Computed example of a mutant assay.
Amino acid sequence: MGARPSGIGEVVAALVRHLPVLAPEYEFTLLRNPVRDQPLSDAANVREVVVRSPANGPVTMLHLPLAVDLAGIDLFHAPANILPGGLKMPAITTVHDVMWLTHPHWCNPSPWGRIERHFYGHGIRRALSASALVTTVSAASRAAILGIAPAAADRVIVTPSGVAADFRLVPRDAGALAAIGVPAGRRYCLIVGQGAPYKNHEGALRAFALAFAAVPDIDLVLVRRRGDTGPALERLARRLGMVERVHFLRPVDRPALVQLYAGAAALLHPSFVEGFGNPLAEAMACGCPVVTSDCSAMPEVTGGAALLADPCDPGAIAAALKRVVDDPALAADLRARGLARAAELDWRAFAAANLSLYDRVLAGAA
């Protein structure tokens, strides 16, 4: 759990919040990122150890006991795709997706990405072969995992992600939106997610231009992190004649993100692949209609509460987006279905499902 928001960070936060309460008979040791200067939990059955080596760094990969004393640990849960080296106890690894093995160019196309490809590829393959159990956050990710490691079928378990309670219906606050860079009085579609190629932000921008080039009173707002694709998107917006209507926001905090969802005409999320796709759940929980991809985990996560389109077809994405924006009855129906679907995505249930797997592994190791 570092300084920047992430889907994996949300998963870890849910485990930290719920597991000590669900399992008072267990003692939990949390390996804490040094940027977190406050305890993660005040539960009596939790102890915390600050580990200076990065969670996804070379020491962790090669031999985690060099960085932290793991004596007395009966089960290790690795929540961030890779299984650390040097573990002597049984381990469960959460593999959110296998893009680094199947589509590494979608993760990081820079020269550094070639190094990351080998790093994550090694850690994920170790997880799939050596973990007592592998959890993943969607049936789509499980299918992708089994496409690589079919022999692991009886060890790969789906524990669907949830959505945090602070993503909820709130009144639209025009002043708060203006303070974070949304032009006053303008309708807008919203994109949320990191700047990696698999998010398909270029396709989203092209689709927005196809849908609304002749509709001057609606904008596109992007909240993005990581990646060096921002300048390329700005150049594309200029070529498409949309540069004045596309707004790249600075990083925002959770209340601001909730406001962005609350005020948007639609969330546009046409990823090529997702392990889960937290913005989908967050948007639905805030009553924001969703347009997303018809592949990977997106149909599963939205559960019939979104319009789906081929992410490789900007025209299809544009048509779906225009339908939502132009049809208030459809938008209202998507809001209602999205709220109902988001209510089914429960972090406590996610933690309880993981706890049942802890019990299973520990019973087998006894």
Rank of each mutant, 00 (worst) to 15 (best):
C189K: 08
S293N: 01
V291H: 05
V182R: 02
L210E: 14
R52W: 12
C189E: 08
V324K: 03
R250T: 11
D346V: 09
R335G: 00
L22F: 03
D69P: 07
I148V: 13
R36M: 11
A143L: 08
V98C: 08
L70H: 07
Q194G: 14
Q259Y: 09
V361F: 07
G227A: 10
R250A: 14
L70T: 05
V223L: 05
L267S: 00
E202C: 09
I218G: 05
A343M: 01
L220E: 10
A318F: 09
G121V: 06
I180H: 02
R17L: 10
T159H: 14
P255Y: 06
L146F: 03
D154R: 12
P24N: 05
N354M: 13
V68L: 11
L355A: 00
D253Q: 10
M242S: 11
Y198L: 06
G113E: 05
M1C: 12
P171C: 04
P328M: 04
N278M: 15
R239Q: 15
V325N: 03
A213Y: 09
W112P: 03
A336V: 08
A281H: 00
A139C: 12
M1N: 13
R142K: 10
H63L: 07
P109R: 13
D69R: 14
P171N: 04
L210D: 12
R226D: 15
P39N: 03
A149V: 05
A80F: 08
L321V: 09
T135R: 07
A78K: 05
A176V: 03
P34T: 07
A174V: 07
G185I: 01
Y26P: 02
R172C: 08
I145D: 08
A178V: 11
H122E: 14
A316P: 06
R225S: 15
D74R: 14
L19V: 03
V49G: 02
E234K: 15
V35L: 12
I115T: 12
G263V: 02
A184M: 06
C295W: 04
L190I: 01
V158Q: 10
V361E: 07
A256H: 11
D326N: 10
A305Y: 01
H269L: 03
E244P: 08
H247L: 02
L222A: 10
L220F: 11
L31S: 07
V291Q: 01
A23I: 03
P255E: 01
I92T: 00
I124N: 06
H122T: 15
A332D: 13
L133K: 11
R348H: 11
A318V: 04
V192W: 02
P183E: 09
D253Y: 07
A71R: 15
P79M: 04
V51I: 07
D327M: 00
A130W: 11
F167C: 00
D327Y: 02
P54C: 14
A316G: 11
G230E: 14
F350C: 12
V158M: 10
G304C: 01
A283C: 04
P314H: 13
H118E: 13
P279A: 00
F28C: 01
E244R: 15
D166P: 02
A306P: 00
P160S: 09
A232M: 12
Y188P: 04
F272Q: 04
K88Y: 05
A306F: 02
A132T: 09
G185P: 02
V11W: 12
P58A: 15
P5S: 09
